[in-house]
Design a protein around this nucleic acid. Structure first.
Lengths: 234, 234
DNA sequence: CACATTCGACAAGTTTAATTGTTACATTGT
DNA sequence: ACAATGTAACAATTAAACTTGTCGAATGTG
């Protein structure tokens, strides 16, 4: 509560250094940490990348690390966001610039999606393996990312439904399921060392999307016949 | 190198204790640890369950822990295996005892699968969240589990294909994709707190399986038209 | 040039958990 | 009852990583 001068921290002057302003230096360090995070998290895994190693690889002091990120997990999240943002941008761009025929556009977009992840497998590893089960908060965040991608899928499906080309219905859950299907296939591809042509993977994905979006012959209305499980769902 | 007596460790006689033989006691402790692991890993997560807590909850001494499991990860793997084995057994049984109609049987099996996981959400959390990205070895193991479930799916699809009821083709990758789709939906269901009837989830899954297995109208042969990505896949 | 700021490098303190060792008590078979 | 064995509880050691603090050197400002 004491007034006068020198009570609180003096407003630091923030001089330039190395030809860069304070913000530029911070940004540069942050970038180097993100690069190091992509490398270590994406190759050796989040668990085996302590702050010390991240700093060693990036040339950033531990002291400065904590000025940029409160925790190691915050860096992981930042790297994850960078990856996901880039992929999402690829997808949106592919959707807008793709062929006019809806199904062709979906194929084109899937191609972009797969390449966005697998051209740098570190991205796929981080997004599909390393960010999972780290913390409750990161898990919530990951979920919102999945929802974002599912939203894109659902929008395409609904666009097709409006044309009357396919059966309609709430595509929220199917879209999420498709997201999981795609992710799982990418992980499979990764762990196999990608020894088969990527075209094959993409073709499978396209077939998958076509099947789900168009829906198979809607003759029967999916009657689930369970044997004797009584379950008052309401 | 000295011979005679008392050189090496004497072959311990292994007396009973508490009315139980040595093997029985070890088994009992192991069981308690598995229960504690299911509880802690499945509710608070693997990351926040140190050995001390596992021992406290299970009533097993840390000393004894190391006689049963070399590492904490080994316990996680054991718990995971227990969960997966139980679910897999449910699936196999549902398949064998389900309705005769193939599609109905698949629906019946999906119902069993979903209940096997979600009736005890700790199982789902461990299998889909906590075992991921822990170590390279556990990741390999998890992959083999996914392949096991995908194998079941593929077998069903091929059985249907033999009848000529659906289009054939290599279902290996689609089966893996379906596995990922199912898992993702279960996680979605979990994190939503399961506020909607589970029937809805199962119906979506059944529709998904029908679409993928039957394949949508195979009029077009999935021609992927990418714009200008030249990529020598061979 | 004098001086304050920023830097990288390093060290010290702290925390957390893994892992092993010790001790006193309980149970069993003789 | 007693000697051997098993047990739980606890202490001690070790290891790894987090986090904060200090130092001289480098850099910019006036």
């Amino acid at each position: 509560m004491r007034s006068s001068k020198a009570a609180a921290s003096p407003p630091s002057p923030s001089r330039p250094y190395g030809g860069q302003s304070k913000l530029e230096r911070e940004h540069a360090r942050r970038e180097r940490l993100l690069v190091a995070g992509l490398e270590l998290f994406g190759t050796e895994g989040y668990a085996s990348a302590p702050i010390e190693r991240l700093c060693g690889l990036s040339g950033v002091t531990a002291r400065h690390f904590y000025e940029l990120f409160p925790t190691r997990e915050a860096l992981l999240k930042a790297v994850y966001d960078e990856v996901v943002t880039a992929v999402h941008a690829s997808v949106v761009e592919a959707l807008s610039k793709g062929p006019d025929d809806p199904m062709d556009r979906i194929a084109h977009t899937l191609d972009a999606f797969v390449h966005a992840y697998l051209d740098d497998p570190r991205r796929a590893r981080i997004a599909f393996l390393e960010v999972i089960g780290v913390s409750a908060e990161l898990e919530r965040h990951r979920r919102s990312v999945i929802h974002a991608f599912a939203f894109v899928i659902r929008a395409q499906a609904e666009a097709l439904a409006e044309d009357g080309r396919v059966e309609s219905g709430d595509m929220t859950l199917p879209a999420i399921a498709l997201t999981g299907a795609v992710n799982e296939l990418l992980v499979e591809w990764m762990t196999r060392g990608a020894r088969r042509p990527m075209r094959e993977l993409i073709d499978v994905l396209v077939g998958l999307f076509r099947s789900v979006i168009e829906g198979s012959n809607p003759s029967r209305k999916a009657p689930v016949k369970t044997k004797a499980r009584s379950r008052k769902t309401k």
